[in-house]
């Protein structure tokens, strides 16, 4: 859980309890031609502990899985956005929790965006699509913060 402090490198934090998804994310990131540094945590408690005790720079962007044991992504987002020190972090929510096309998903998306999430992404089936999603999020972040 150590981050390199390179200039123009995007510091990425991934919070996901699913080992396969962490693998897919890491693999996708490596295939994206952008300078980045990835740190991963396995659940909500680890995430909050990392953010509050880590001495290095805060992540530029946090990919946060919604359903995790111990502390859900929902709870983590709430704590982050209420924390003066952390609330500036760009948070992208990841989920598989909802059946496609249900109102519930729309409602959740709206709630999360209102709470301060930058985007809400359903984990895709196709690997190429996953790469595109991550790349787009990083590109948006770079454009916004001038990294």
């Amino acid at each position: 859980m150590e981050a390199n402090q390179q200039v123009a490198t995007i510091n990425i934090l991934l919070a996901d309890d699913d080992m396969d998804d962490r693998f897919f994310f890491d693999k996708a990131l490596k295939e994206i031609p952008m300078a980045s540094q990835l740190i991963t945590v396995n659940n909500g408690e680890q995430l909050m502990e990392h953010l509050t005790t880590h001495t290095g720079p805060l992540p530029d962007i946090l990919f946060l899985d919604l359903s995790m044991p111990r502390k859900t992504g929902f709870e983590c987002l709430s704590e982050i956005k209420e924390n003066e020190k952390l609330k500036g972090i760009t948070v992208i929510m990841l989920t598989t929790s909802f059946t496609r096309g249900l109102d519930l998903e729309d409602n959740s998306r709206k709630t999360l965006i209102r709470m301060g999430a930058t985007d809400y992404i359903r984990k895709p089936v196709a690997f190429d699509e996953l790469k595109q999603i991550i790349k787009q999020a990083l590109t948006n972040l770079a454009a916004k913060s001038g990294i």
């Binding site: 699913d18 396969d20 998804d21 897919f24 693999k27 598989t96 984990k123 895709p124 089936v125 196709a126 690997f127 190429d128 996953l130």
Partner: peptide, 13 residues
């Protein structure tokens, strides 16, 4: 749903 999605992702990889 979850394991199935992973099967699908692995197939695309």
């Amino acid at each position: 749903q979850e394991p199935l999605r992973k099967i699908q992702t692995v197939v695309t990889i």
